[in-house]
Amino acid sequence: MADVFQSLLTFWIPWEFSFFTVVFYSLAAGLYWRGIRHSRESGRQISLWRQFGFYTGILLCYFVMHTEYDYYAQYMFFMHRIQHLVLHHLGPFLIALSLPFGVLWSGIPGRIRQFLVPYGNASFIRGSYRVLQYPPVAIVLFVGLIFFWLTPEIHFVAMLNQNLYQLMNWSMLLDGLLFWWLIFSPYHPGGVGHIHYGWRILVLVLIMIPQNLLGAYITFSESMLFDVYDVCGRAWPLAPMTDQIVGGIMTWIPPAMMSVVGILILLGRIRSQAVERNDPPGVDGQLVAPGRA
């Protein structure tokens, strides 16, 4: 029993310590916590569902990036695929669904916030954001990154070189946040980077197709596509083909499921918008809390 407890604890020790990771996640959690306190003081309630979604999202991402899990992700292909499933899909999905950016913003100390305002409004930043959130660009980036890092030669150097490895994981997380924010941000006509829910559903359908093809290709490939796991050794003796098949399935099925769940949530929002239009005004329908959607 003591052994299990100890290994549970030691599992949280980072495989490769990264100062940047610690700062990033502490800032995210700290600012969110301050933001929640701030909104409570000013009489706005952030539902527990939203808080739960946010904290679960960042905890999952932290877990796959900065614990012993990272070791398994480096030395087992299918564990690596699960890591990217969390960093690119599940984690950012939960974070974006919890609509955290207003809360995070209000968690920034007043003076720093004032200092940041001009940057947030700078045309360069707004322009780049608009480009990144332009649906065709967002789709190409989202799918392109998956294909890019799974190109066998690039995958080989990314797994061998620690800096490239870090870049790979952070690029997945940041793109995941951008993408799922495009999908789940509350719709304001004319808002920067806002498209109607119907278009968002189309985006979710479109990203599914190439991901399914790639996942199926890896799953059914009869040759070993990623030999870096043979070169570096696997975390435990698992047949290389089994590793590749499970990894292929992880690239194929769960991401498709995430698209489907996203579509269901958006359909829920479209319906509640339609209901609102028939209802007398005054109902707060702009922010649909996860769980209710």
């Binding site: 070791y71 480096q74 030395y75 070169v231 570096c232 050794g233 696997r234 975390a235 435990w236 003796p237 698992l238």
Partner: peptide, 17 residues
């Protein structure tokens, strides 16, 4: 690089990755 051990069989022999 890394290595890892499989579960020993009835004769106590095991694979090593």
């Amino acid at each position: 690089v890394t290595y890892g051990y499989g579960k020993p069989d009835e004769y106590g022999s095991y694979e090593v990755s």
